[in-house]
Amino acid sequence: MRIHRWLIFFALVGIAVYWVVTRPTRVDAAAIAGLEEDVARGETVFYAAGCASCHADETAQGEAKLQLGGGQHFPSDFGTFTAPNISPSTEHGIGSWTREQFVTAVTQGVSPEGQHYYPAFPYTTYTRMELADAVALYGFMKTLPAVETPSQPHQVSFPFDIRRNLGGWKFLFMSDDWVLDGDLTPEQERGRYLVEAMGHCAECHTPRNALGGMQMASWMGGAPNPAGRGSFPNITPGKLTWSEGDIAAYLESGFTPEFDSAGGHMALVVENTAQLAPEDRAAIAAYLKAIPPVDG
């Protein structure tokens, strides 16, 4: 009888802890109320954060890269995720979202309905973004063409299809602390912001544990391709011996120092980094030279 009572007690405590830990968070509306929807600033955020790489059609060129109808598939150990429509369509996209809903989605990984997003959407990176940049991005996204294509569902099986559990995943693996700490030059700080808060390089270049959390001790140390064969290279100084100039030139032209060219998803990344200011590409290069080397 007494044991039963304790079991019930612990079960209730467990449920309470689960409820608190997995609760979807929201951005503070007051914190973003006074911020300006600066479209030009938002355009830089758009390219630095690489939205089109996943949400535009993979084969899109030129203006078509601004049609964010979604549809690209991302196979993984947990199922296949499909990028949704994030164009300003009010029916199929995010055209009816408020500023608060948008900033919450991008920086907290929580939908307007209060559901956790799967971390295939790199909000674990965007959570480090300045709110002013998220608001500026909101302003820019509204200028893009509406695409009237319905979003397709993700193909994810039990237990990964229980969205509430993602709150536990976030509790374990989501942090808005900087990965590269210590004294940095202003250029390295800018590079850190571009990489750790926007460019989400680590999503592919850092290996993951069994639960899909990043192995922070091997930050940017290279990882297998979750979609199948092949791998993403180690881009720490332990392996990447290119000069800062080489890295910046690669991010502009797609050409390696040996004049091989970027392929796969990296070619899409370069289409974005080519749009950044030269100083920003140089800052990313400076950051990559400053991160701890991982043996490769």
Partner: peptide, 11 residues
């Protein structure tokens, strides 16, 4: 890049 993007493994 267009051809490598579509038809080449990452690494």
């Amino acid at each position: 890049g267009d051809c490598h993007k579509a038809y080449r493994l990452p690494d």
